[in-house]
């Protein structure tokens, strides 16, 4: 079973300083929250896709396509049906409301997708290192690393418990809700107890390896900010600026005029292409 999204590859995004990525992620979230129109959110989606491509992580995103699509469709539907203004149930069908709902669905899917790109291009150790650089105490950052490390272990022991009980005839698929809930006792108790035992052993193992020895820790992971981090920062600032003032800028007469002539040019081009035999 592959439980982690991280892809051990060489790419510009992999090589970014973890702090850069740790800052970029919430900034991207903020930009997504600020944008509302479907068109601008689609532009942001393009940005995320470009970053994923640069990070050679498109397949990681594609691998989660079902999750992303479910999020997108479910959110869109919910907003479209139940929105307080323009919702289908209250105000009947309104194309603008549908577009708005789709935008909100896309916003959520985008945030998850950028999270996937982050995890696919950042080692847990680097993630923790980034958090420490940002001032988080080592123990907290270590707990995060540990949580990631333990996921496959807990999944494996959970599976082992379920198999052991199914082999003794435990049936989790039939019966009413209450009976089914009660049937989970044989799963929960052994999982809980094995987890406690494991935590106990883990604590001893950490101590034997000098955890909290009082010495000043060496951090093996080392990163320096480089040109690509500066470039990423500039692009991020540009993105934020565009999300904040892009709309105003676009409504300036000069920009409007420029956009109008560009549009006319495109239309002419299209007409020419269409009239060709």
């Amino acid at each position: 079973m592959k439980l982690f999204l991280y892809l051990d590859r060489e790419s510009v995004v992999h090589r970014l300083h973890p702090v850069t990525k740790l800052v970029a992620l919430p900034v991207l979230f903020g930009v997504a929250m600020r944008l509302e129109r479907l068109e601008t959110l689609a532009l942001l989606a393009l940005v995320v896709v470009v970053v994923a491509a640069l990070g050679r992580a498109l397949d990681a995103v594609a691998g989660m396509a079902s999750l992303l699509l479910t999020l997108l469709i479910a959110t869109t539907l919910m907003w479209w049906l139940f929105a307080p203004q323009g919702g289908l149930l209250r105000d009947g069908f309104q194309p603008a409301a549908l577009a708005r709902s789709a935008g909100l669905g896309l916003r959520l899917a985008l945030m998850v997708a950028s999270g996937i790109v982050f995890l696919a291009t950042t080692r847990v150790e680097d993630f923790a290192h980034g958090l420490r650089t940002l001032g988080l105490p080592y123990r907290v950052a270590f707990a995060l690393t540990l949580a990631f490390r333990l996921v496959p272990t807990f999944v494996a022991s959970g599976r082992a418990v379920a198999e052991a009980q199914r082999a003794r005839g435990l049936d989790l698929d039939h019966g009413g809700l209450v009976t089914r809930m009660r049937r989970y006792t044989p799963l929960v108790v052994p999982m809980f107890l094995t987890s406690i035992r494991r935590a106990d052993r883990l604590a001893a193992a950490l101590e034997t390896r000098g955890f909290g020895s009082g010495e000043k820790r060496t951090d093996l992971v080392e990163h320096r900010f480089g040109g690509r981090d500066a470039l990423a920062a500039v692009l991020l600032v540009g993105l934020v600026a565009a999300s904040l003032w892009g709309g105003e800028l676009a409504s300036q007469p000069a920009v409007q005029a420029a956009l109008g002539s560009a549009r006319a040019w495109l239309e002419a081009l299209y007409a020419k292409a269409a009239s060709r035999p």
């Binding site: 010495e215 820790r217 992971v221 320096r224």
Partner: peptide, 25 residues
């Protein structure tokens, strides 16, 4: 630049004891 050798768990113990980085690698 970036450290090339970054094994997952192995350095943990030596890091805790404050061994210099090059020595750990």
């Amino acid at each position: 630049m970036r450290q090339r050798t970054r094994p997952g768990v192995l350095p943990g113990s030596a890091e805790s004891l404050g061994v210099p980085r090059a020595e750990i690698a």
